[in-house]
Design a binder for these strands. Structure first.
Lengths: 332, 332
DNA sequence: AACGTAACCGCAATCGTTTGCGGTGGAAAA
DNA sequence: TTTTCCACCGCAAACGATTGCGGTTACGTT
């Protein structure tokens, strides 16, 4: 079952291998009718290029890495789908790596990418990643890196993310418009740029609506367990609370669980709104209102930027922001 | 930033490239002290082998495909984690593909694997895949295929799956032991071997406990919407029902949603048990009892079998069954 | 002293493509 | 008729590793 090679085609057509190669890639040195003939025969013989050989010659690996903190339930699914599509359409393969949300593993994986010689990296940081020094090895090797979703604002690497301020603002503003004035917000790790942006949006919405801001309204958790432990205190200390906001699906699901556990009703006792990828809200009952954060768009944009960087055709916008959209359900 | 090559090492050590190559791979022709020297210098110079060149020479691609119907919320996460680990530890890369649960896309992706020249394929079938003819192209090309999770029993390809009969039996038996005698089971597409096995387990548990079986107790759905539509009828037609069983996380989450939607309580009005990967049950309140189906084990085993097949060292067991475990929570 | 035999290592081909450069032919220009 | 100049194509050397085969040593055997 040996595959047809360029040499085989050359033999069949009485041409040289170089001509075949050039014809197949539309090199201007080759006449149109020769290109025609070559392509026809290539197709009829089911010629499939040997990517390994091509990669060897062109000093590439054909691999693009997508590094995520985890392969969690919600957000990443559509992101991966999008990345897969774009990557494959451009003749690359996507290898997915997960850091398990530890900085150590993230460093390890970056090393791995280096040794594997991937052609580009898309990276969503862990909550513990407070610097980008570990990426220098890639920068020195001229391997392009694009940060996405969980990013750190910086000047070395491009990043794709959503407008955190606006997204959180939209959610909180919706709550307020629905009459809620005592809102508690659940956020993730404060070291993440994303978290800070969303907190800013939270505050901005309050301010815009003339509602005084109380620092106790904003609570950050590193783990779900912290939230489990804190929840009873929160409802006790702030009994006037009528609504919860969560900045992610993971937090939302956990908050939902806790609200139910303590026998509260949604939306009667507490309203609930979240920033979400749109899957989890529909699993729960009642469906949860959310600001839709499309993983698909993020994945797609990140790939496109990365491919531009790899192929060096043009300089893409290095800092891009994906928009979001309010989805009203029954939880508010 | 050119990387160190074998030739560079050869130059440094006054040896030939072939000797370096052999020394690094512990070829018996090379003396121990030479191996020692070579390895030391290789390490100190941070030599990294060029996988592309190696793959070209050895006619491999270094790629292993993992094809899943979707990247759904629940089951696949740990499966992917496991596959990633094993694959990387053996010097391969994992490329993940998703069929979106359509047979057409599955065929397409198989073709893609063929043209990419992957070294092996792990495949979980779609619900619509009722034959394996599309895999013949891989078989002819001698590319090993391992089926996992959603399989079709056959003689051409090895498969790794869980003991569906026993797993469903365990769940139902637990319900019965807890006093439930009128149980309705929600299942997926009947064409899947998995579904039939689990139905068999369902029936077996009833029989073993001397409970008469009523065909209406078993209901198969191709889509969540079908279940949404059927649910009200079910509770009306079988008012004596006290418990629901679902054969997957997806069905379970949907059933949970419906039970809540129609204002029933869990476990007071209906008990709920499922076969699950263990994530979703803990998101919900109350936590859902389930029979734990470890995606990790399946992924790991499948990889190991595939690697055996690729490297041809030994003949692995071609038909393996992963065990499961009952996890009791508050929903029963 | 001559020979056989391991143990150890190098030569050179090979995997399938890409690509710089040089060569050919024929038509247009002189 | 000779020169010039494209348009088109081939030669051969890469890319970095693996591997069959053959060649050296150094040693023990007779």
């Amino acid at each position: 079952m040996k595959r047809i090679t360029i040499k085989d085609l050359a033999g069949l057509l009485n041409l040289s291998a170089s001509t075949i190669s050039r014809a197949l890639s539309d090199h201007p040195d080759i006449s149109d009718k020769t290109k025609q003939r070559v392509k026809e025969v290539a197709k009829s013989m089911h010629y499939i290029p040997n990517f390994t050989a091509k990669n060897l010659r062109t000093r590439q690996s054909g691999l693009i890495a997508l590094i995520l903190p985890e392969l969690p339930m919600f957000f990443t699914q559509s992101l991966i789908t999008a990345a897969n599509e774009v990557v494959h359409n451009n003749g690359y393969n996507l290898v997915m790596l997960q850091t398990n949300n530890t900085f150590e593993k993230e460093k390890e994986i970056i090393e791995y990418c280096y040794t594997m010689g991937v052609d580009g990296v898309m990276l969503s940081l862990t909550e513990k990643s407070d610097n980008l020094n570990h990426l220098q090895i890639l920068k020195r090797a001229q391997i392009p890196v694009v940060l996405l979703d969980r990013i750190l604002v910086n000047n070395d690497f491009p990043y794709i993310t959503i407008d955190g301020v606006k997204t959180a603002f939209t959610a909180i503003d919706h709550l307020i418009k629905k009459g809620h004035r005592n809102i508690v917000g659940f956020f993730g790790n404060l070291s993440l740029d994303m978290t800070r942006k969303r907190i800013a949006g939270f505050k901005k919405a309050l301010k815009n609506n003339g509602i005084p801001y109380n620092p106790q309204q904003i609570i950050c958790f590193d783990t779900p367990e912290e939230m489990d432990a804190a929840f009873p205190q929160i409802v006790k200390l702030m009994p006037e609370t009528t609504a919860f906001f969560t900045m992610s699906d993971t937090l939302m699901v956990n908050a939902y669980h806790l609200i139910k556990k303590y026998k509260y009703q949604i939306p009667e006792d507490f309203a609930l709104i979240s920033i979400s990828n749109g899957k989890a809200p529909n699993f729960l009952y009642p469906n949860v209102s959310h600001v839709l954060h499309s993983g698909y768009d993020v994945g797609q944009k990140a790939c496109e930027v990365l491919l531009e960087l790899i192929n060096g055709h043009s300089k893409p916008d290095l800092k891009q922001v994906i928009t979001t959209e309010l989805v009203v359900a029954e939880s508010v």
